[in-house]
Design a binder for these strands. Sequence first.
DNA 1: GATGAATGAGTATTCATTCAT
DNA 2: TATGAATGAATACTCATTCAT
Lengths: 227, 227, 227, 227
Amino acid sequence: MSPSTRTRPKRSAERTRANILEAAIAAFAEHGFEGARIDAIAAAAASNKRMIYVYFESKEGLYDAVMRAAVESALVTLRDAANEELPPEERTRRLIRGYMHFLADHPRFVRLVSWESLAASQRASVAAADLVGGGLQRLAQLAERGVAEGAFQPIGDVRHLVAAVHGMCLGFFQRRSLLESLWGADLNDPGAVDALADVVVSLVLDGLRRRPAPADRLHPTPPETAP
Amino acid sequence: MSPSTRTRPKRSAERTRANILEAAIAAFAEHGFEGARIDAIAAAAASNKRMIYVYFESKEGLYDAVMRAAVESALVTLRDAANEELPPEERTRRLIRGYMHFLADHPRFVRLVSWESLAASQRASVAAADLVGGGLQRLAQLAERGVAEGAFQPIGDVRHLVAAVHGMCLGFFQRRSLLESLWGADLNDPGAVDALADVVVSLVLDGLRRRPAPADRLHPTPPETAP
Amino acid sequence: MSPSTRTRPKRSAERTRANILEAAIAAFAEHGFEGARIDAIAAAAASNKRMIYVYFESKEGLYDAVMRAAVESALVTLRDAANEELPPEERTRRLIRGYMHFLADHPRFVRLVSWESLAASQRASVAAADLVGGGLQRLAQLAERGVAEGAFQPIGDVRHLVAAVHGMCLGFFQRRSLLESLWGADLNDPGAVDALADVVVSLVLDGLRRRPAPADRLHPTPPETAP
Amino acid sequence: MSPSTRTRPKRSAERTRANILEAAIAAFAEHGFEGARIDAIAAAAASNKRMIYVYFESKEGLYDAVMRAAVESALVTLRDAANEELPPEERTRRLIRGYMHFLADHPRFVRLVSWESLAASQRASVAAADLVGGGLQRLAQLAERGVAEGAFQPIGDVRHLVAAVHGMCLGFFQRRSLLESLWGADLNDPGAVDALADVVVSLVLDGLRRRPAPADRLHPTPPETAP
DNA sequence: GATGAATGAGTATTCATTCAT
DNA sequence: TATGAATGAATACTCATTCAT
């Protein structure tokens, strides 16, 4: 019995599972946990309702698998960007750009995370919270390194800062359609996403307040230390 | 006490309507449109299911009333803050602080808006979108005035900036419980909210990148104090 | 206390009752017992739901009153036509014409009777059955008098004949809209009703079969008495 | 007996569908559209409520299927009778007898058509109207052929005549229980139906008015016996 | 493993009817 | 007498889940 012949049925089983998962991702992203319909998922997967229960045990089980898959794919995509060795500012720019492009390219991920954060009180799918929590902590470490290296000034709690940046980036894509119609823009266009990312980067690095020419920079910014 | 002056009739349309609306706000905020149960709302309002249909026509009608009420309360709270005549930086600080305190004080509003933005593709409750859209546009005008007055440097599209700030503020409270447990903080504490708001304000006004202070920075920020 | 002042409230009470009854006739005629809505009737009567229960005790009570009123109005209209002293043929013509005009002028009566005959198995409103039954018996007596007077030939059971004629007449108006659209006719037009009545009269009196000229009429019709 | 040849699987879509349809025919015939209860139909079909929606989509869908089935069965039964090549009088007799026996044998059909004609204004189930309308037109053609062949004298509009006959026949069975109790007869007895049909036939062919027999009337009615 | 039929608990909605004023 | 609010039982319809083949 060659391994290839033994693999055939398993292949098809895996494919069924994958089809269901794919259909479920689409459904849960679109309608949320309550709104998604098992019937519709089975139909979209060109499979049978019973199979969902065979492979995933219940609607909740399926939902968990969906969240796990989404988080996993996010991790894979984002890990690389975070690990590059670059000067703090450039690393910041890269991270923000990378994250925003990921969000732009994965609207279903954005929606899944959003639904999940709303339902968090009721269901116990820790996956998403872990992802966000873990990601935020990692970013906080990077930011602290920037401070330690003297590139960044310490404003308040670094973890707050990180959460703020995360909110900015995610927010654009949570309100994607509203903003697109408000701006007459199309966030499928990578150029548009770059421009948006640049706004975030500028804001994070330089802020909004106009300041005098760099020639006479002698004191650190906090004005109350002045007199 | 004559019966005609009795102010608390047991059968009062207004009171019943208000009870139902209150219960519905809680339910829709907690479970979203699909997840909320008419039965539960009627029970929580200590009223009868039928009354919901008398006063609100349908679940969707009730939902619309809830959104309208939420948006209205938000507008009332925010209008004042936006209308004050103050120098741009101070106005910015006030607006951000005011908005964040509003969000901190109205977690149900945060959830309602979040559910709504997810369901926007399916339902046509324009209320929330209008609020956010309108609010963003108003803020954009304010920011542009700041630029015109020479207080702000123009970074990218002002509307992008405004959306970014909105995302920051709202994001904190969308992920409220996650962040609270991550930070060991309690966002019911006004002080904690102030601190968070200050991070946002600092970020918006000054950015993160450390730069030498200008020679003539002798006084606190308000520019109009310089003769 | 003059009778006129004492009558005032009674007048208004009677008027309320009459309004309700009128609205109920319309509603029951249009939608039948199950389909009629108490709410709609109260609204159409520009009165209050409670009044219906005050005056008629229940939906069924109201329905009974409606049937009684309908039957009564029918009796009033039809009694005269039947009591005239005329030769049998003319009386037949008059009766049929009169009945058909009554049906044409009272579509709600037609519908009420039709609903009732369908619901007869379930409700015990004998009124309509009595009317039809009583009317049929009266007609049967008239027909028998015609036979006794030698004007009519006895075909089968006279009661069958009467039921057949009743079915013809009523049937036109039970299928009124279908026939109107099929014929391109308008049964509100008295002329059209007359024409229709003439068909019935001709059929009843002379039948369809063409027969030889009247000159050589020597024997009574029944052919089996011939040889 | 191999399992594959087993003809009575406990789970058979067709059987379930048929059971539901049968139960629905009974229910709609008995109570009409509004009065029929989905719960009761499911119970009577020894099936599950859900199945009704799987097979028929909605109560209205089920009702349509019921009407379609009823009409179809009527058409099958009546088509043959109408297509026979016979002399006009005999064809008339056959048609009337056939139709009346069909009505006597299918009381549910009578009730369904009656409910439908009352509700016609509200629902759009064209089936029944089409049947009656189509049937009437076909009969009208037959009658006109009789006139053309010289067997019938033209009285008024042929279409009126046909509607009248239809009303007679249907009317007997719409008022079935009333007439049965009035006559002390049982219309389940084919003989009784025949007698009733003969009344209709006599009326249609010869009318009621007594007239002297024509000289050459030597033989019983069937004209083809005269050489 | 895969399929389609079946089910029971639940969901929004409606109705006739009855209080309270 | 009249009014408007309230109610509980029912009604059409839906869903996740489980048999039977």
